[in-house]
Design a protein around this nucleic acid. Structure first.
Lengths: 224, 224
DNA sequence: TCGACGGTTCGGTGACCGCCGAAGCGTCCC
DNA sequence: GGGACGCTTCGGCGGTCACCGAACCGTCGA
């Protein structure tokens, strides 16, 4: 099998709507059962089973057996990054036909970090206050940023140089913070109860505590 | 059209072998005619025409008309990054069946920067000598690195903070340097005559001057 | 032990899509 | 002007594949 053929095979697997639904359902890093994925993909269990077999065979998904359930998750962060990259190219739908995805566009998780308007606002805030420096090529935590993040409780790698991976947000078309720092930020916000995961969705809700917290600490007010 | 459906559509476009060949042929940033792409895709001109229309319609390719020729190129660097991401997941073919792609694995361009063994060796060298710091999340040019790169003639952004984007090499499965710095390095190596583009391929050849140059300046000896 | 449930396998059906050759359209050059 | 060339459109063919329902296997709980 050729290199290009291998690429085509992987892309082709993402290229089917049912499988694309399965993969995006797993994009937040959770592990879901075959049945849950069948619901997400909107196809029958038997059809889903076939898709899952192919995705697993191609090492896009990893599977873990627990009793009579089989839990599927993305095989590696690399898969998540690939999906993000495709999303970034596919771009957002025209504004006029946004339907029901408003919550998703407002705040969501993206494998392990925050995205959507909240993610972008967080990146903007940290950039504006000089705590991180971002460009299309990469980003870095500044000295003041390091202190700030330590106090916030999201010190991603103690004592080590910290980079942040910029990740183009497909709905906002602006970068948000991914990588180790992005994961630490999201984890800390969850820990503080500022955000809460929604069931069966990558969307997250901003709690009242989060609303004031994001406002005070980062100067973010998504309703403004 | 749903967000996920849009992603699936883009992925599906990459998912066909002929189209994948077309896209990878354009991955080095050049603009090629429809006929050249038909040759690259190994399908008839009529079939190629259909593929090109679909790729252009989906904004994966941009087209420029010149007389009776139509020149196609990747619509944006984002498309190149997406292809790299898919390649990284698809991974390298098992070593036993490498066929004819040896030159490609040795040294090639990847949109605008160097990849393959040469690209990885360059990244290793710059890291080892402390001129750049790299991690999976990002990278940065150090102070000594800035001076070094200025002298080499590959100062990517005068006076500005320079990040480098790490890019997982699909054949080596190790990071090489992409982004603005990667582009500047590749351009400078070409300018110095250290490397030469091959016709009809993303592979580059290392010239005799390059062989000694890479050895003296970066301590790279790919034959060793 | 016996249903209930999660998941897979199988067979059949239908649609989509990639492929080509032939014909048509516009451009260039002799 | 006429022929060569680059590219596109059209029609038809064939293969692949997504889909479902029914039957089957293994696990859990009553």
């Amino acid at each position: 099998m050729n290199d290009v053929a291998r690429m085509a095979r992987v892309a082709g697997l993402i290229g089917d709507p049912a499988r694309a639904n399965i993969l995006t359902a797993l994009l937040d890093g959770r592990a879901l059962t075959a049945k849950e994925l069948a619901f997400a993909a909107r196809v029958s269990p038997s059809t889903t089973s076939g898709h899952l077999a192919r995705l697993t065979d191609a090492d896009l998904l990893a599977v873990e057996k627990q009793g009579r359930h089989r839990y599927f998750r993305l095989a590696s962060p690399l898969v998540g990054q690939m999906l993000e990259a495709v999303m970034a190219v596919a771009g957002p739908a025209p504004k006029s036909i946004w339907r029901g995805s408003e919550a998703l566009r407002n705040a969501r998780t993206c494998y392990d970090h925050l995205a959507g308007r909240l993610g972008v606002a967080l990146a903007d805030s940290l950039t504006r206050s000089g705590h991180v420096a971002l460009s299309a090529d990469g980003g870095e935590v500044t000295d003041t940023g390091h202190a700030f993040l330590c106090e916030f409780g999201a010190e991603p790698a103690p004592g080590k140089r910290v980079f942040c991976r910029p990740c183009l947000d497909w709905s906002e078309r602006r970068p948000h913070i991914a990588g180790r720092l992005g994961a630490a930020l999201a984890a800390r916000c969850l820990e503080r109860g500022w955000i809460a995961r929604q069931r069966d969705s990558r969307a997250v809700t901003i709690t009242p505590a989060g609303s004031s917290g994001f406002s005070e600490t980062f100067g973010i007010d998504l309703n403004g």
